[in-house]
Simulated scan of single mutants.
Amino acid sequence: MPLALPARTAHRHVDVDGVRIFYRESLPEIPDAPVLLLLHGFPSASHQYRRLIDVLGARYRLIAPDYPGFGHSDVPEPASTGGTFDYTFDGLADVMEGFVQRLGLDRFVMYVFDFGAPVGFRLALRHPEWIAGLIVQNGNAYEEGLSREAAEFISLRPHMEGAEKAVRDLLTLPSTRAQYEGGTRDPEMIAPDGWTLDQHFLDLPGRTRPQIDLAFDYISNVERYPEWQEWLREHAPPALIVWGRDDVFFPEPGAHAYLRDLPDAELHVFDTGHFALEDGLREIAPLIAAFLDGVAAGSHGA
């Protein structure tokens, strides 16, 4: 068996409207390799895609940025405390739009997970010409894809008694670890590095208020679900849906709901949780590779 070497990966920064954005970019060994933009979730950052980049990055150009307030990117002071940056999903999408433009990307497959879905769908609505295909991994766009716990959390408002405490409780190590291990087949297959690094960033000075602001803004995503669904119906991008069925936030019905608007989408559901790549990489990576090849060859339509 030939030795499988990891991809070469560059770690870079780019300035987007005064915000220094960190990103990882694989350096593929083939010219004009298909581009996959990886949009991360909460409470993570681009590091959640390190293993996927290692596996696929020699063959495809994988690009994974950190949002403002996440990972190694800048944390501008929130507007809610007198600063200049709005930690809303519109605000994150504004920076990611500028990021794509700064890198000169004009056509790519987009991978959306968790927070990556509301950020990514905003990009898709603004620039449908950018989207060559869509990979959805536990990135919700339907009300039936919200668990009872998620719906209750989203209903919190800043003026409600105990609401901010509920958000702060979500930013603690036990909660972060539970998001990685919850719903998995074998917790021993989940490396502790992911939740440890996530918690390191969450605990840095100035990081809490951005997360609180984003939590209270999540309702804006639910309100826009009909727009995203209309976009899916109208543009019908080639789509691969891979989903951890035991996600405590976004359970399996959210995966099947996409088929209402994308009946030709390829759907795979796995016996795992929210961070499906953590223990499902061996199964999911080949599906992504085949999907990217199909999009590049035009065999997926659109």
Score class of each variant (00 low, 15 high):
Ala4Tyr: 01
Pro6His: 06
Ala7Met: 10
Arg8Gln: 12
Arg12Lys: 14
Asp17Gln: 11
Phe22Gly: 03
Glu25Met: 14
Ser26Arg: 08
Leu27Met: 12
Asp32Val: 11
Arg51Gln: 14
Ile53Ala: 02
Val55Leu: 09
Val55Asn: 12
Arg59Glu: 13
Arg61Phe: 13
Tyr67Ser: 06
Phe70Ile: 07
Glu77Pro: 13
Ser80Ile: 06
Gly82Trp: 12
Phe85Gly: 04
Asp86Phe: 09
Asp90Met: 04
Glu97Lys: 10
Gln101Gly: 14
Arg102Asp: 06
Leu105Glu: 02
Tyr111Thr: 02
Val119Arg: 01
Leu123Val: 05
Ala124Lys: 08
Ala124Ser: 09
Arg126Ala: 12
Arg126Gln: 13
His127Leu: 05
Pro128Asp: 15
Glu129Asn: 10
Glu129Phe: 04
Glu129Met: 09
Gly133Asp: 00
Val136Ala: 04
Gln137Lys: 14
Gly139Tyr: 00
Asn140Trp: 05
Ile154Asn: 02
Ser155Glu: 11
Pro158Met: 04
Pro158Gln: 05
Met160Lys: 01
Glu161His: 14
Ala163Lys: 05
Asp169Ile: 10
Pro174Val: 00
Arg177Tyr: 00
Arg177Leu: 13
Ala178Met: 08
Gln179Met: 15
Gly183Cys: 00
Arg185Cys: 05
Glu188Thr: 13
Ile190Gln: 05
Pro192Phe: 04
Gly194Asp: 03
Asp203Ala: 15
Thr208Ala: 10
Arg209Glu: 13
Pro210Gly: 05
Ile219Val: 12
Ser220Thr: 13
Ser220Met: 04
Pro237Asp: 11
Val242Cys: 05
Trp243Arg: 00
Gly244Phe: 12
Asp247Arg: 04
Val248Pro: 08
Pro251Lys: 05
Ala255Gln: 00
Ala257Thr: 02
Tyr258Ser: 02
Asp261Met: 14
Pro263Val: 03
Asp264Tyr: 07
Ala265Phe: 00
Ala265Glu: 02
Leu267Met: 06
His268Tyr: 10
Phe275Glu: 01
Phe291Ala: 01
Val295Ile: 11
His300Cys: 15
Ala302Met: 13
Ala302Asp: 12
